[in-house]
């Protein structure tokens, strides 16, 4: 068989595929919003379900999201990408971009908690101590992504033996929370460190085990408008709604906590 468009049948097949692809893509888009402006939001993967909900309700403009590990998004902004808003799963990345003159002054808009996440159907592991046992497959975030940095902070607060035992069981350093969550829901791994909101988003497939209070890191989410943003006024409205209004409500429903009073 040759790949080519010489025969009418092959040409028809390619044409049909193209029409099908366009039709499927067309069904997914919101045709009523075509006359509105848009606001481009680069956000941490852990914000996906809350922001998607907020985006559907956001009245001023069509929200376009790009979800990835906060560190990847920051790298994109550093190499010249211009989303309107950068929402990070920590405050260090927005603060650093602010110092570099790439974003406006960041604000804290939500807090989260790091938890031990396990597949809901399994009896083990059930505690941090279980994680160090032989044969337990643990997945964590890579050191560059906030969830991985928080996880390492927790591990540093453990005693040497426990920390080394857990690290010896780490089987993958995933680039974002989506990767950790997928490995756990697919039963490929036995435990991982995620935000409590990520566990809520799996709708019962994962279960969260709270960390002892003295191990819990401060997980604060920072957001900033990117300097030179194309849709600055819509971006401001989007940001305001995150602090008070539909965005704050969506975050709360997804399990995020309100930022500390400023």
């Amino acid at each position: 068989m040759r790949w080519g468009l010489r025969s009418p049948a092959a040409f028809a097949a390619v044409l049909l595929t193209a029409i099908l692809a366009v039709a499927v893509a067309g069904c997914g888009s919101d045709s009523s919003g075509s006359d509105r402006g848009e606001v481009v939001v680069a956000a941490a993967t852990s914000l996906k379900s809350a922001f998607t909900t907020y985006g559907e309700q956001f009245p001023d403009a069509e929200a376009q999201f790009s979800f990835a590990g906060s560190d990847e998004l920051a790298a994109q902004i550093r190499s010249g990408a211009k989303p309107d808003i950068f929402a990070s799963a920590n405050t260090t990345l927005p603060d650093a971009l602010f110092k570099e003159g790439l974003v406006e002054r960041p604000q804290v808009f939500a807090r989260n908690r790091l938890v031990l996440a396990v597949p809901a159907k399994r009896a083990r592991p059930r505690s941090l101590a279980d994680l160090a046992k032989p044969g337990v497959a643990v997945v964590i975030g890579s050191p560059s992504v906030p969830v991985g940095a928080y996880t390492r902070k927790v591990l540093e607060r453990l005693d040497d033996a426990a920390r080394r035992g857990i690290l010896a069981n780490v089987r993958s350093n995933e680039p974002d929370v989506g990767g950790i969550s997928a490995k756990l829901t697919q039963g490929a791994a036995d435990a991982g460190f995620l935000y409590s909101t990520d566990v809520v988003a799996t709708k019962g497939r994962l279960q969260a085990i709270e960390l002892p209070a003295d191990l819990q890191p401060q997980v604060a989410y920072g957001v900033a408008i990117v300097k030179g943003a194309e849709h600055r006024s819509d971006a401001q409205a989007f940001l305001a709604g995150l602090l008070v209004g539909p965005g704050a409500d969506a975050l709360k429903r997804a399990g995020f906590r309100a930022p500390p009073a400023q």
Partner: peptide
Amino acid sequence: TLIFAGSFRGRTQ
């Protein structure tokens, strides 16, 4: 590779 095998230095990265 990332989806099926994960990412771990020296083993799957």
